[in-house]
Design a protein around this nucleic acid. Structure first.
Lengths: 230, 230
DNA sequence: GGCATAGTTTGATCTCCATCGAAGCGTGAT
DNA sequence: ATCACGCTTCGATGGAGATCAAACTATGCC
């Protein structure tokens, strides 16, 4: 069947790369434009590190991703805007074709509410919190880059988080992370991680074993809201 | 491990449909906008009829195709312009990362110059035309959304295209579609289709049989340029 | 009716690849 | 040095799906 057809280039190869659920999740996670590490992407895709590594190699080989080694981390990103445009187009078709909403399910519901995204909080609570930060000028958003606002340092200091200390690592203090359950974004970066630490340390919520779910207790939730949503 | 985490639309499902070589060949064959029978598509894909039938059922189920029974034939077609746009976008990525296509080839050259993209014109001519429209304010671009500019209606009316009539369908009048041969975009939507209709009606160009190629005649080309590029 | 053509369905086969555990290899910290 | 951590490679397993032949259905033709 050597059939010399193939109008344009190898469309099937590219599409099949996106056609695997794990890889599709990784790619959508990278749609923020931010670069993510292999571990973060593994978590986002719901697979183990070796599996993720294999997928990343394939995506690299297919030219969809670029990588930057930094210390012992490897930051993966979409190789260019063309790839992002393609993903948008596919999303467009997928959205128009089928509401296809899989039943939310009980597990999904709690996941939507609050879950861990690598090392920070994601889900509705996280999105609300992020919105509040921006509205109050604690955090300033410029497109997809977010930074600590003028009121930020004192705001977090009052809540027991020393933002100055977070700047030590190479990691950005603030980063924006797209939420799959809501169409909005939440706070990642060192600050996002610190906030989650605080939530767990205060025992406002606990992590379910072997799951990304973060389960708030009733009074934990109100404490959290009083602290970070007001 | 149940990590079902769809980002909303099921992008992996759609992409995996395109990700099979046989299906990809069928879809690209349908990019001409014409409807083809199952047998023709089987031939185009290089598989037997049963296999093709199975693929067509999957594509139907995924919402990428529509079908019309006529006598003992079943005519399959792309379910809409959105699907065509997605395919073009995938082609764009595949072309840009293309591991050195064997050679441009004569067929490929004419495709780059002018071809059909579902129901509108694509290729260098189409991109130049789109650029001219935007530059002259006939069409206004805002990011990826394009709309008819203030001068648009009279511009097209003078050229025999009634833009008011185009608004009747649910389809957008203007739409932006990525070109895989050039890295720019061209005009799709009802208006894009109307322009192609005009080009063919005036016999400035004719469509090659069983191909996406649009072949301009020498004087047809100058007439086209005088009309839509000036 | 009877035959031919267009398509689908069924069932069985076979290949490919996603997945994970374990081991290997860097880099950074102590 | 030594340990910890991030990531990749290796090897084995399992499952999904692409494929075709043959049987079946439906339509058109005579």
């Amino acid at each position: 069947m050597p059939e010399g057809l193939q109008d344009g280039p190898n469309i099937a190869l590219i599409a099949s790369l996106v056609g695997d659920p794990a890889r599709a999740n990784m790619l959508t996670a990278l749609m923020t434009g931010a670069a993510l590490t292999a571990s973060e992407l593994a978590l986002e895709a719901g697979v183990t590190l070796p599996t993720a590594s294999s997928h990343l190699a394939k995506l690299m080989d297919g030219g969809l991703l670029s990588v930057a080694s930094e210390g012992r981390h490897r930051y993966y990103a979409l190789s260019g805007p063309q790839v992002a445009a393609m993903l948008e187009a596919i999303m467009g078709v997928a959205a128009s074709v089928g509401p296809k909403r899989v039943r939310p399910g009980p597990r999904e519901a709690t996941m939507r509410e609050a879950r861990v995204c690598y090392d920070h909080l994601a889900g509705e609570h996280a999105v609300k919190m992020m919105d509040g930060f921006v509205e109050r000028g604690v955090i300033v958003r410029d497109g997809r880059t977010v930074t600590l606002g003028p009121l930020g340092a004192s705001y977090f200091a009052m809540r027991g988080i020393d933002t100055a200390n977070l700047g030590t690592s190479r990691r950005p203090v603030c980063r924006d992370c797209l939420d799959w359950s809501v169409r909005r974004s939440h706070l990642a970066g060192a600050l996002g991680a610190a906030i989650l630490d605080r939530i767990l340390a205060e025992k406002w919520a606990r992590r379910e074993k072997d799951s990304r779910v973060v389960a708030f207790s009733p009074k934990g939730r109100t404490a959290f809201e009083r602290t970070f949503l007001a």
